[in-house]
Design a binder for these strands. Structure first.
Length: 462
RNA sequence: GGGGCCGUGGGGUAGCUUGGUAUCCUACGGGCUUUGGGAGCCUGAGACUCCGGUUCAAAUCCGGACGGCCCCA
């Protein structure tokens, strides 16, 4: 297997193939086939996301994939941000369509004409919906599994509120949701506010959640957008206030994609393969029997016990592979915890545990399983988060001059906010401004022009 | 838009300079023996991107198409 540290890109491609996550041989460029194991992981990620938003009163919907040209081309800057990457459906059978239809690149223009019908009065607000669907973007750049593709597995939440303050409160709630999700996925991140020229087309402002992969390049894994009334004015989403006057709704969105899976692969994996956070592992505990008297019965019994406490467990009962092969195979697939059972364990009424991310093996009494296994899965998750944070911090450098930008990773530095200074940095270092760090309070002199600036983060990004 | 590199079984490759039976690893089917850290032996099936040219003969040389990758704008 490729060496992760020195050949990250090759390692990344190889592990996706070996672990059976996705098959990129599908003969349409930029469109890959989700394989069973990869799709299962993605589905578990989705269910974590669902749980986090459902409990905050979002409701799941499912909009059509096709959007009429007239809906999309409502006259304002939103469409211009996407016009070069839209797939158009122009024919039905042999006939040209009267109105061309777009495959959604994102769903504002599909949803907001409906919002306009649904939102009548203040009693209809807040409106909080989401969907998890494919979106389509004709990427011209180099495609890369789960990172840059043309059919994207996408989560998008959309809200409408009575006031700007309510919409701002929603922005804060998004951050809370993200804290919850990122803890389960063991992903460290920065919040930063995108520069105006890089915000979501049509938004007032955009805040991104950025992480960094071992290559030193940053990866945007989530964005939240404050729309204010930019969209509601164009899609005519207004409501009757208590005083009898009308006002436009204030809107926000939250977007994430299969890049979450890319981040999990890239950040946690090692030279043996994937390491999956227990919360998204299709198999949390793999039981490997070492053939012998009574071993299979004992293994099945333990499987039943773990099933009964909702641990995702499987016995590897394949007969044509040796235990050693199975150890390596499941380590490559990232299973967090392995139980080994042979005649020794049967005789002593014990099990032997091996954690994917902690060296060594331990033996415990079979009677303690129902407490020890859930605790161990939590320990594994905590260790993964600690390791990921350490790795993240090793890729963050504070720079007080442009010369210090020359390292692989995220660079934090003071910046005045001007496009000229960001362009100048990009020309010299290949790194560009991701944005101002949202929670940083410090001020200082811009590393390019010396004017008063705030703390910003720069990187070469995916 | 400009330039460069590359297309060989499912995956990874050798062979190409100097034309002649296509190599090895892995994965896959069958069989026997194995199983506490990637088992062994036997056996089977499987490939030169396409079109044209040169030649007795093309994976190899020439031209073109298609596809992939990289760099620059």
């Amino acid at each position: 297997m490729e060496n992760k540290k020195d050949n990250f890109s090759e390692w990344y491609n190889e592990i996706i193939t070996l672990a059976g996550l996705s098959d990129k041989r599908y003969p349409v460029k930029g469109m890959n086939v989700w394989l069973p194991y990869g799709w299962k992981i993605m589905s578990l990620i989705d269910s974590i996301v669902r749980k986090a938003v459902d409990k905050r009163n979002f409701q799941e919907v499912n909009f059509p994939v096709l959007i009429g040209r007239s809906m999309l081309e409502v006259e304002f800057e939103h469409i211009r941000g996407f016009e070069n990457e839209i797939y158009w459906v122009t024919k039905g059978g042999k006939e040209n369509l009267e109105e061309e239809l777009a495959l959604r690149p994102t769903s504002e223009s599909a949803m907001y004409p409906m919002f306009s019908l649904w939102v009548r009065s203040h009693a209809d607000l807040p409106l909080k919906i989401y969907q998890i669907v494919s979106v389509y973007r004709y990427e011209t750049k180099h495609t890369r599994s789960f990172i840059r593709i043309r059919e994207i597995h996408f989560f998008e939440a959309h809200t409408a509120h009575a006031t700007y303050e309510d919409a701002e409160a929603q922005m804060d709630q998004y951050k809370e949701i993200w804290r919850e999700i990122s803890a389960q996925l063991c992903l460290p991140y920065f919040y930063d506010q995108r520069p105006d020229w890089d915000k979501f087309p049509g938004a007032m402002y955009t805040i991104a959640f950025d992480t960094v992969l071992p290559s030193g390049r940053s990866l945007q894994i989530g964005t939240i957008h404050q729309y204010g009334t930019n969209f509601s004015k164009n899609y005519d989403i207004k409501y009757l206030k208590e005083d009898g006057t009308f006002d436009y709704a204030h809107q926000t969105t939250y977007g994430m994609s299969e890049r979450l899976l890319a981040a999990i692969i890239g950040i946690h994996g090692d030279d043996k393969g994937l390491i999956l956070p227990p919360d998204v592992a299709p198999i949390q505990v793999i039981i490997v029997p070492i053939p012998g008297d009574g071993v299979m019965e004992y293994a099945r019994d333990i499987e039943n016990t773990l099933n009964s406490i909702n641990v995702r467990v499987k016995v590897d009962d394949r007969e044509n592979f040796t235990p050693g092969y199975k150890f390596n195979d499941w380590e490559m697939r990232g299973v967090p915890l392995r139980i080994e059972i042979g005649e020794r364990e049967v005789k002593n009424k014990t099990v032997t545990l091996s954690m994917r991310n902690i060296p060594g093996k331990i033996t415990i009494d079979r009677s303690k399983l129902i407490y020890e296994i859930p605790d161990t899965l939590i320990r594994i998750r905590e260790k993964m988060m600690d390791d990921a944070k350490r790795q993240f911090n090793e890729h963050v450098f504070k720079a007080s001059s442009i010369e210090e930008f020359n390292r692989d990773g995220l660079i934090t530095a003071f910046w005045c906010g001007s496009k000229e200074c960001s362009d100048s940095i990009e020309a010299k270092t290949e790194k560009s401004a991701l944005g101002f760090m949202v929670d940083a309070k410090e001020t200082g002199k811009c590393v390019v022009c010396g004017k008063e600036g705030k703390l910003a983060v720069f990187s070469r990004s995916y």
